[in-house]
Design a binder for these strands. Structure first.
Lengths: 206, 206
DNA sequence: CTAGACTTCAAACGATTGTTTGAATGTTTG
DNA sequence: CAAACATTCAAACAATCGTTTGAAGTCTAG
């Protein structure tokens, strides 16, 4: 209870799980790998989380709660401006993910886990994500709709779908671009976010 | 040897594997699931392919050989025109994937498998894909470079990375857009490709 | 200090994993 | 036809999977 945060058994499991799920996928990373990496007894996962599936959900919940709170706060700030630009709304979505991947020692692992989730067709996981965080996407969609009145609803949804894929993929840096040797991780990711926003804005406006 | 194509043990394994890898991932789909779905003895996989990893590679090779041949042919056709447009080059990349997913009974499964591969950090798979199909991406990159002389090399690579992600995910339709009840699969996918090309062209041009 | 709750631990559970075996069957070739 | 090769098959291999157990250890409240 009075454990130092980040050093409790639960926390160490979550961190190891995040890292290994990012590397090998949800099916590919075993609980034995996770508990060994976390330096924790195998049974601890079922004791603290109940099952592997619930561990996966907790890996998401821990990050997404804060990520989406930040996203909504940023969106609110943007929409309070007199003339919010498309780029501002995109930044409100992308920048919090960028910060998350930089501030925490978890680092880029979670955004990769998110991309994994995108590729999974696991019904339970999709429902969990939709139930808990669907409203965030709805609010952003509404904001985009206001800024792009020339697009009908179907047109808009198509483009947002494409944007979501591009964002997810690019933030997870599955691609070919390598960080230059002199460049810091922060630099690299900030540049990625910048490119993304410009690209997506152009595509959305057409 | 003289089997009717598509009904041999090898073919049936490849088709079942493609489908199940798309649904559950490479680690998530077991050889027993695959061989049961293919109506084939379990040992047949190791007899015909040697191992699960080599089966995965063959799932890719079978489709990618033709997909990339079509892509290169389409690119060559486009570049032979007096004034090739950006959209033409994009179409040369996207349309063959669209056709592949429509013509074959494998249907949309393979494009989903491709998206899975993107999310995998499996070193062997990445090397296999890069060794066998890296030259195709290089040729397209060169074509884009010619059409977008205002972009320096780094700028261009960033954008192509984003485009690749958007294309991959959108073609695999992991997103939220649902096909309307009256709409055919073909209609839906053609529309997806169209949106993609317009979006990517706008983003590339800025 | 002690009773009770919480947490960790080694060990084992049955089920499932990819792979291998050797005999049985099919097919092709001389 | 017979020898040679190719394929299929049921069965078993050791390894690993997620989960459960019950005892040992740790902590906290009375």
């Amino acid at each position: 209870m009075t454990d130092i945060p980040g050093f409790s058994t639960k926390q160490r499991i979550l961190e190891a799980a995040e890292d290994l799920f990012a590397k090998h996928g949800f099916a590919g990373a075993s609980l034995r790998q996770v508990t060994t990496a976390a330096n924790v007894n195998l049974a601890a996962v079922n004791y603290h989380f109940g099952s592997k599936e619930r561990l996966i959900e907790e890996v998401f919940r821990r990050r997404l709660d804060e990520l989406n709170a930040r996203r909504l706060a940023a969106l609110k700030r943007v929409l309070a401006k007199p003339e919010p630009a498309l780029e501002d709304v995109l930044a409100a979505f992308v920048k919090p993910a960028l910060e998350l991947s930089l501030d925490r020692k978890g680092g880029p692992a979670f955004v990769r886990v998110l991309a994994r989730a995108y590729a999974e067709h696991n019904e339970r996981l999709r429902k969990f994500l939709s139930d808990n965080y669907g409203h965030v996407l709805k609010e952003f969609a509404a904001a985009f709709a206001r800024l792009l009145p020339q697009l009908d609803k179907e047109e808009l949804y198509w483009r947002l779908d494409i944007v979501a894929g591009a964002l997810t993929y690019a933030m997870a840096d599955f691609g070919v671009i390598k960080r230059r040797s002199g460049q810091s991780e922060r630099d690299y990711r900030e540049r990625a976010a910048q490119h993304l926003i410009r690209f997506a804005a152009a595509g959305l406006r057409e």
